[in-house]
Every structure is written in C-alpha cells, then in structure tokens.
Design a protein around this nucleic acid. Structure first.
Lengths: 163, 163
DNA sequence: GGAAAAAGTTAGGCATGCGTAACTTGGCGG
DNA sequence: CCGCCAAGTTACGCATGCCTAACTTTTTCC
C-alpha cells in the first residue's frame, strides 16, 4: 500500500471515501464543498489519485475508489477517528474544534504515535465500570473545568492509588 | 501579538530562538542545519520575519529576535514542549520520534486543544507520589507494552478505583 | 596585508496547491 | 428535439517554500 500521497491528496481521498460511504457515490462538487475548495482544485487532485490507481473516474462522470484506494482511505480515516476520540472524549475539546484539529493533525503523526494513541484511547474507553469513565479521567475533567485537584490529593500528602 | 506567520516562518522563528537562547546568537548556517534546509531558504525566510519586525539582521551579520519576536517564539516553543511532554512522557513515544512529531503537530493545534493538553500534562505530571507516576499511567504503560490489562480488571468485574 | 575558506546573498528554477475565467458536456423541461 | 443550466473541465496565474549555481562579503591565518 504505497502511501506517497501528499497531505492534500490524503484529504481528497478521505473526502471521497466519506461521501461515497454516506451517499453511495461522490461527485466533484460535493468533494469541493466538503473540503471547502473550488472545483478545479478537486479535478487536479483527482488526476493525481487516478494516476496512482486509487480512484476511478470517467470524464464528466462520478467518482469511485478502487479497492486499493478504499484501503488507504480507511487507514487515513482511522487516524482521523483516533485523534478525534482522544481530543473530544478524553481531553474534552469541543466537537467542532476537535474535528478541525483532527483534520489537520492527522497528516503529521508518526505510525508509532498513532499506535500508542490507539492504545491510550482503547485503554481509557474500554474501562468496564458502570459509568464508563475511569476515575482518573473524571478527576482530570473536573480539574480541567475547575482547577480542582483530585480528592485524593486534597487531604494529605499520601496518594490513594486512584490516579 | 500578530501571528500571521506561516508554519515555516514559525519554524524559523523557533529555531532562531533556540539557537540564540543556547549560544547567545544565531547565524544563518546554524539555522539551516537545525532545520535541515539550505542557507538560501533561511535567508528568504528571514526577510519575511524582518518585514514583520520579529528579527533584526544586518547584511552578513548575525540574527537576533526583537522583543516581539521573542514573545512569539516563546509561545511557539511552549506548544512544542507541551506536545513533546505528552507524546514522550505520557504516551511513551520514543524521544526522537516524539520530537519530530511535536515539530510537525505544533502548527496545527487550536488554542483550546493546547490549553487542555497543558492541563492534561500538568494533571499527570504534578502527581505527588514518591514514584512520580500515577498508577493509571503505570497501568497504561504496561498495557501499551504488553497488552496486559490493569490488575484491577483482571480479577473481577468490579472496578477498584485505581484507573 | 592578502589569499583562501567560510558565511551570506542573489538570481532563477521547480513542485505543490490553490484560485478565476472561460470552456465543454450531460441531462432536463418545454 | 433543442436550449439552458448545472456540473465538470481546461488553461491559465499566483503564492509558498524549497533547491542549485554563482556571486559577494567576512573571517582566518600565513
């Protein structure tokens, strides 16, 4: 799976993937709107993706991913999702901001960071208690919101093992 | 503090700041080496920074930040540091990789994410126990390394408050 | 003090990625 | 069936940011 794609090419690929997934097929105009660019920019980006065998597209027709393109798009989207979950679900960044940040950051994380982030999100979210939130995360979110220290730090210099 | 700086301009500013901080002054050649670009690239980047009043530099002389440039550089560097601490100290990304990722990501995080990340790192690192590591983080790091679940999840369906 | 080396600069080229303006094409309504 | 309009396309142009090659200036050191 050769990934010699520029950041912008990755964005186009991901957009086509999301649109096709959601509505069955993707069109130039929709991609342009989704990425907030003009149509000629989409066309020239598509040429690159076609040359790499990631997209099929006949003149004046609609856009489809090849299976290789779809694999790659899924991988790209996976990064996006992990980042979003970390930013939104753990850090508590507002949804729209987390979404925008994930878009921009996704192109810049190394495989190692990605995998550790996946583990971190899994570790946090697979916590099995009733309330679905680990205590330390509760404490963090309270701390972030109010500056209030976790309860176990308030009463003595001794830790309580909760953090 | 007008921050209409391109990503690359921010990199140059940060590099000058670090070099000047470390060695008293910065020179074109050093900046070039630090950023792994050629000298003419540095020269043209510096022109931009001079036009914005962030750097002083006389022909064939050495580089200095104005006070405004220094303010900005500190702010940029702060982002970098927070990211590095998160990636390295918490996620456990290898030092060189964390450094490289921080470099690239620093340009793409929103102020909101930055502040929450600061809080997250503070929350984690200001933990006062003897061993300097919160238990949950110990558990995460073990989980990341071995896939092993935290002890409190191994013996029953009941949580233990440690996570 | 002057030549050689090192540092800095300029000129000019290339790739990426976006834009506008002007065009072609495809499909729909009258 | 034909004109019209929206969608798609092409042909530019511009900004950024890097490069190499060739130059000028400064520094070094014999």
């Amino acid at each position: 799976m050769a990934s010699n794609l520029s950041h912008s090419a990755q964005d186009y690929l991901e957009a086509i993937f999301l649109l096709a997934d959601r509505e069955g097929l993707a069109r130039v105009k929709e991609v342009a709107e989704h990425l907030d660019v003009k149509k000629p920019s989409v066309v020239s980006a598509i040429k690159v993706l076609m040359r790499k065998g990631l997209v099929v597209h006949q003149h004046y027709g609609c856009l489809e991913l090849t299976s290789e393109g779809e694999e790659l798009a899924k991988e790209i989207h996976r990064r996006h999702q992990v980042l979003y979950r970390f930013l939104h679900d753990i850090l508590g960044v507002k949804a729209e901001v987390a979404e925008a940040d994930a878009c921009r950051i996704e192109h810049h994380i190394s495989p190692q960071t990605l995998e550790l982030l996946v583990k971190f999100v899994d570790f946090t979210e697979s916590f099995p208690e009733r309330d679905k939130t680990p205590k330390w995360l509760d404490y963090f979110q309270r701390f972030a919101a109010t500056g209030e220290a976790p309860p176990c730090l308030q009463d003595s210099s001794r830790g309580c093992g909760c953090k």
